[in-house]
């Protein structure tokens, strides 16, 4: 649907189902259809492989739920790169898990050796405090896979005294405001928090009628329903690709209670070197 001024806004069916899709659904399903659907569902199933025990891969279901005090999830290339630049340090962190998934946009394997530009979903653990878990998820998790992701990832954790922080990015064009988005100083941060989250938030909260979708929304909904303190920092940016300005937009979070203790001791030159490395990869 185009508005009076020509910009295109999403106008989904009020009832949430496309008629074409619905007609397809209503049609009698043949055994062949069923088999295809089952095979596809099997293929789209996601696997979380934990490598907690001395490098040996174990299926998530086999492992005992582990204690987790802080869980930091970075969704998207920019948020993942922010963690790489300011938090992750090969000396202090070890890879403890990987998500293997397949969908129409991306596929990830069970390898833990990845480039910043690859699509991947990895879990890290702080060596000095194994209850601190970090997740970099730069791959696309499809709508039908998000619930599975939650069940399988949170299924492995004890939920007592857990605190979740989510970092994500989305286009500034999705931001609704009385002003024109052209005048907004992008990139900028907005936050959403669950009822149980009582700490100070590092940026303004997201105003109505703005909403957040996809995996960040799925994680935050899960935390709200299961009464886990959680905060989502959403960075509105006009560059969705890996971009140093967008990465830097997350910097106010370094002073937050949860990240302050984890910030790696980098000097300025080292940081610049990190960015240059990312730029080079981006241009490849």
């Amino acid at each position: 649907m185009a508005t009076f001024f020509g910009e295109v806004v999403v106008a989904p069916s009020r009832a949430g189902v496309d008629d074409e899709e619905w007609a397809e659904e209503a049609r009698e399903e043949t055994p062949e259809d069923r088999e295809i659907r089952r095979e596809l569902e099997k293929k789209r199933e996601i696997d979380v492989l934990w490598t907690l025990k001395s490098g040996a891969s174990t299926e998530s279901s086999a492992a005992e739920p582990f204690v987790c005090s802080k869980f930091i999830v970075a969704i998207g290339h920019n948020a993942a790169a922010f963690l790489s630049s300011f938090i992750l340090d090969s000396v202090c962190w070890e890879v403890v898990g990987v998500v293997k998934l397949w969908n129409e946009w991306c596929r990830t394997s069970n390898t833990t050796k990845v480039l910043p530009t690859d699509s991947f979903c990895l879990f890290y653990r702080l060596i000095s405090d194994p209850t601190v878990l970090l997740c970099q998820c730069s791959c696309y998790v499809a709508e039908d896979q998000q619930f599975q992701w939650l069940e399988k990832v949170f299924g492995c954790m004890r939920k007592e005294s857990l605190q979740v922080t989510i970092l994500s990015t989305c286009p500034v064009a999705d931001y609704k405001t009385q002003e024109s988005t052209l005048t907004l100083p992008s990139p900028f941060l907005k936050a959403l928090k669950t009822k149980e989250f009582k700490e100070q938030v590092c940026c303004p909260l997201l105003e109505q009628p703005n909403i957040v979708r996809d995996l960040p929304a799925a994680v935050l909904s899960y935390c709200q329903v299961w009464q886990i303190p959680a905060v989502l920092y959403q960075c509105y940016t006009d560059v969705i690709k890996l971009d140093t300005v967008t990465i830097e937009a997350f910097k106010p979070l370094l002073s937050s209670k949860i990240l302050k203790s984890l910030v790696k001791n980098l000097n300025f030159h080292h940081k610049i070197a990190c960015f240059q490395e990312i730029r080079l990869l981006e241009n490849q």
Partner: peptide, 9 residues
């Protein structure tokens, strides 16, 4: 349902 979050509508 497709996940979605926002502040009190």
């Amino acid at each position: 349902l497709v996940p979605m979050v926002g502040n009190n509508p």
